[in-house]
Structures are given as C-alpha cells and as structure tokens.
Write a protein that binds this DNA or RNA. Sequence first.
DNA 1: TCTGGGGTCCTAGGACCC
DNA 2: TCTGGGGTCCTAGGACCC
Length: 426
Amino acid sequence: MPLYALVDCNNFYASCERLFRPGLKGKPVVVLSNNDGCVIARSNEAKALGIPMGAPAFQWEHVFRKQGVAVFSSNYALYGDLSARVMTVLEDLAPRVEVYSIDEAFLDLSGVADAPGLCRKIRARVGQYTGIPVSIGLARTKTLAKLASRCAKKDPALGGVFDLAGCPDPEAILAAAEVGDVWGIGPRHAKRLLSRGVRTALDFSRLPADWVRKEMTVVGLQTQMELKGISCLPVSSAPAPRRSVLCSRSFGQLVEDKEHLREAVCAFAVRAAEKLRDAGLEAQAVQVFTLTPRHREELPQHQGQATVTLPGPTNFTPDIVAATLRGLDEAFRQGFAYQKAGVLLLGLTPASARQRSLLDLPPEERQRQRALMAVVDAVNRRHGRGALRLAISSAPDRPWHMRQHRRSPRYTTSWDELPRIGQVKG
DNA sequence: TCTGGGGTCCTAGGACCC
DNA sequence: TCTGGGGTCCTAGGACCC
C-alpha cells in the first residue's frame, strides 16, 4: 500500500522573518507581495487579528499600526535559502522526497515500518536544524496527505503530525473539510459545487464519477479518486522539465509612455533570458503582454499580447530583447495607462541537445554568443544583478520600478547583510 | 442534386497550484 | 496614491494535411 506524507512549513515567509528577530516571537508578522501590494504570509497572531490572505496592504495599514504588526516586503533570497536547508533535512531522513514548492515537500513513505514515528522525528529535526516549524500529514494519497497536514496545523494537540491512514474514522475528517479546501478544487469549482449542495470533501467524494468527469475534466476525477484513497499521483523526485519562463511585474506607477514600457519589458527580457541560461535552456518564442489595472474600471482597459517566433532556439539576450521589442509594438497601444507587463519565453529545449537546422548561425558565431553571455552572467553573479547590462535596460529609479520599502536584510545570502552580534534586536 | 474522415499541431481560454 | 509573481494542465476549435 502506498503511503505519503506532506511536510508543510507553517506560515513559511513569516517564520523566516521571525528567525532573525527573536523579539518578534508571539507578535503578529505579515509579509507583503512584490510592490508591497498585498499580504502573502501571516503569523498565527496576524491571522488572529483577522488579516486575510491576499489583503491589500493599504486597506490594513491602520491595523498594522494600531496592533504593532511587523510588516516585511518579501525577501526571496532569504526564503529560498531557508527552504533549501529544510529540504536538505528531509532528504537526509526520508527515502524519497518531492520538493513541491518553496515551503512544501511530499515524502513517499510506502513500506516504512513506523511512518508516524519517522514524521515526528522529521518534524523535530527540521525544528532543531532550521528553526522552521512544520506540519506533517500522513495518508494513502497525496490529496489526502494535504488534507491531513491541514488537520495537523489546525489542532495543536496533535503535535504537528496527523496520520489519516491510521485514523479510526477517516470519513469524519472528510466531512469536516470544506470542499474548497481540497487540493485541486479552486474557488470556481467550489462555488459551483456549493450551489449544488456539495459542501464537504466527503460530499464531493460521493458524487457520480461521470458528472465529475464531465464538469471538471479528468483533473477533477483524479482528485475524487484520490479522496477515495486510490492513489493517482506518484511522488516524483525528478522535477518535470520546465515549459515556460516568465518575468512580469506590476509597476510602481501607471505607465503611459511607450519609451518607459520599452525599458521595462527590456529589463524583463534580460532577466528571463538569465533564468533561461541558469536552467540550461533555450527558447523558440517570446510572448509579450501588457495589462491595464484590473481594479480601475474608470480607466480604458486593454490587454495586449503578441508572440514572436525566434529564428531558432536561443538564450542570447540581445536576440530575446529584440524579439521582445517587436512584440511590444503589437502589445502596446497609445492612450492606455498600463499597470503591468511581462515577458514569457516558450518552446523551451535543453541548450545542449539542439538539432542543427539550416537557419542556424555558424558554430563560431554561436560560440561567441555563448561566451559573451557566460561573461555577463559571471560578472552579474559576482557583483549583483544588473552590474553589467544592455544600454537600453536603464538605471534604477525609473517610474515603473516596484516599490519595496520594507525588505528585511538578506541575512543568509549577502555578505553585506549578515546579522551582527548586538545589532539584531526584536 | 453530391461536400469524408482522421490525424496533428497550434492557440486561446479557463481552471488550478504555491 | 494603493490589489503579486511564477508556474502547470486540460479542452475546444481552427488550420492544415493526406
């Protein structure tokens, strides 16, 4: 019988921020999205104040001030580093680990003698080595393990581990879970299900399979089977190959000027190309998109989109930038105030295993391009992103740059920002 | 007067996840 | 003044081909 665990870091970003500010223990902490736009992580104390996930920060400013909430801009360098440390501990202790997201991992514990005991050990070890509290759910399928980890998180009496596979009354657990809390059932389907009287995970598991198939595709059917204890989703330690690379941002202010938009999408293209090279990939097409603000109905709305095919698979920044600018000519319209834009790279193939085609550049030219990018990447790694850049992708302090007023130091990944003894206070 | 059928590829749109 | 960013997958429909 298969047996899976889901390890979930509690309030991950908020927990990371708190690690380096012991004084924040027991205090409300929130972390904001890029642009300081909305709340994306909350400590338990912040949840208790009623601050919802995704809340626009400006609407809650008064609560932050009045209740002494510690507010942080998101600091992905810090979170990524702590995540890697947590995953290392899991890999040391569990036979097979699938890193599912920055703060979650599935473990395949099929055949492990005392799986609940191992889960308790893992939880203690992660806490000891990293300081990050985790909740662990154990069950026969991944979908049930997700559900079990929510139980572990909600009920402190469980000590952070809940074993649904060994639970005497599993149906009671399904009956206590709202249908929208099931992994794979989003707000859209939840609403439709509710309108048909399907309230809980148990209700959903009892729907006729053909209805589920018809209304929610095979994906919904898979979710239903998993809820019934039939495992459809194996743990896979090899990450699936990437299919796209995206770089997009909301702007600090609305942008009407095409020149500013050109600078912005150029910067996105440069960053996307870097990610592409980091992953050892090349792209065959570039998609550029532009958006006016969603929440401002009084403004003229436009969603621009253009896809430009590259002459052949490439990760050479100047080619990707050139394609991006051609795409922007189509995606931009004069007279609109844009709030966001992005560059999406598609048709990804490994850079090593390319097929030669008639359109290919001569090998010496490709070699020259590759060498140039290698130098640029090396310099930027050493001296910080943007140390070496294209002339067009401009200096800081442009109007489209995002706001980020409350970022914590990169304690663990930047020499300049290491905590100093005597300086760290709560 | 009559207008096949099957396969593939691409794209847009919609749903989901963290 | 002020609502994130980065991904995945499925399906339907059209273009194209034989």
